Amino acid sequence: MGVGTRLAAAAAMTATAVLLAGGTAASAAPVPATATARAAAGAAVTFQVASASPALAPTPFTAPGRRLKLGAKGAAVKALQTRLRELGYVPGKIDAKYGGTTQSAVWAFQKVQGITPTSTISSRTWNALENPKAPKVLVPSGKPDRVEVNLTKQIAVLYDEGLVKLITHISSGSGIPYCETAVWQGREQRFCGDARTPTGNFKTTWRRPGWHKSYLGQLYNPIFFNGGIALHGALSVPLYPASHGCVRLPMHVAEILPGMLGTGVPVHVRGKFRR
Rank of each mutant, 00 (worst) to 15 (best):
G217W: 11
T204I: 13
T102I: 01
P222G: 02
A52F: 07
K78R: 14
T46K: 13
T24P: 03
V90C: 11
A37S: 14
P258C: 02
K93H: 06
V269T: 09
Q185K: 13
G22Q: 13
V147F: 07
I170F: 09
P266Q: 08
F202Q: 12
T59H: 14
T197W: 12
N150K: 06
V137E: 08
F191G: 02
A79G: 08
F273Y: 14
F191K: 11
M13P: 01
V265G: 01
T118E: 03
V112A: 05
R208Y: 13
D95H: 06
A44I: 04
P117V: 03
L68W: 06
L239H: 11
W206F: 15
R38Y: 03
R275G: 07
R85K: 14
G65V: 02
A96S: 09
L219C: 07
G271M: 04
G262Y: 12
H244N: 10
A43W: 13
L56N: 06
A134S: 08
A75C: 03
R207T: 08
T62S: 12
L80P: 00
S51L: 06
R38E: 09
N226C: 12
L70E: 00
P132C: 11
G173S: 07
L249I: 14
V149H: 06
Y215H: 15
P58L: 08
E148P: 04
Y159M: 06
T118F: 04
V157M: 15
T34P: 05
S104P: 04
P54V: 02
Q103E: 15
A43H: 14
V112F: 08
P54F: 10
S236Q: 09
N150W: 11
Y215V: 12
T125G: 00
G114N: 13
W107E: 05
R196E: 07
L129A: 01
M13K: 15
P209V: 08
A29V: 12
S171N: 07
G233Q: 10
V137I: 13
P32S: 10
I94D: 00
R6C: 05
P250D: 01
V106Y: 01
I155K: 13
R146M: 02
T82H: 07
A8E: 08
T46Q: 12
A195Y: 04
L231R: 03
V149Q: 05
A29R: 10
G262A: 15
V157K: 06
